[in-house]
């Protein structure tokens, strides 16, 4: 959903701050897909992605009254989502328990062009959470390396090197997947 200019967004936030549920819903529906996809592509677990995206929106609701309408909402939300997704992935990797199922990739509903998407997601799942996060932010959410550095609290050089290494590794994984 690409509709929704900055002007619309400011109006939704203003409306929500004054208690309008329809305005909050417009804001939610506009930002949910990218927030959820970003979480999903980092954690590769639908339930966790739902919780992470949902918690980010709940955080937004809690801070709504103090939110500065001049600032764009998306980057603020995505910062929360991606940082929580990285934390979740790290914690999952550290605390895998006996008999715990691996992070299974849950296939999307069948579609004629789904193969490439699945392959890409499967290859992405094999990268480290840190590499996944920068690739998702750069190529799914369209942030610049500078914006990613700001959101993840990293030096810009680190973001660039993670992007380069992550994409190299992704290319290698994709080759393996397609072989």
């Amino acid at each position: 959903m690409e509709a929704g200019s900055r002007g619309d967004e400011r109006a939704w936030i203003r409306g929500a701050q004054s208690g309008s549920v329809p305005d909050l819903e417009a804001l939610f529906r506009h930002h949910w897909p990218r927030a959820y996809r970003a979480a999903y592509l980092v954690v590769h677990d639908a339930a966790a992605a739902e919780d992470i995206a949902q918690e980010a929106f709940l955080a937004a609701v809690r801070c709504l009254d103090r939110f500065d309408r001049r600032r764009p909402f998306g980057p603020w939300l995505h910062r929360i989502v991606v940082n929580r997704a990285i934390d979740w992935s790290r914690s999952r990797a550290l605390r895998r328990e006996s008999g715990d199922a691996s992070l299974a990739f849950v296939a999307a509903a069948a579609g004629p062009e789904r193969g490439d998407t699945e392959t890409l997601a499967a290859a992405l799942a094999k990268l480290s959470p840190e590499h996944r996060a920068v690739i998702v932010m750069r190529h799914l959410l369209d942030y610049t390396p500078g914006e990613i550095a700001d959101a993840l609290n990293l030096p810009r050089g680190t973001v660039n090197s993670r992007l380069r290494r992550g994409l190299d590794e992704l290319a290698g994984r994709l080759e393996q997947e397609l072989r």
Partner: peptide, 24 residues
């Protein structure tokens, strides 16, 4: 850029909207 819905995205949106609305 990834433009396809990811697994569970739409159902999760409906469930989460109810919770977000309630919190709001």
């Amino acid at each position: 850029r990834w433009n396809r819905p990811t697994p569970g995205e739409r159902e999760a949106a409906d469930r989460s909207w109810e919770i977000v609305r309630e919190a709001f």
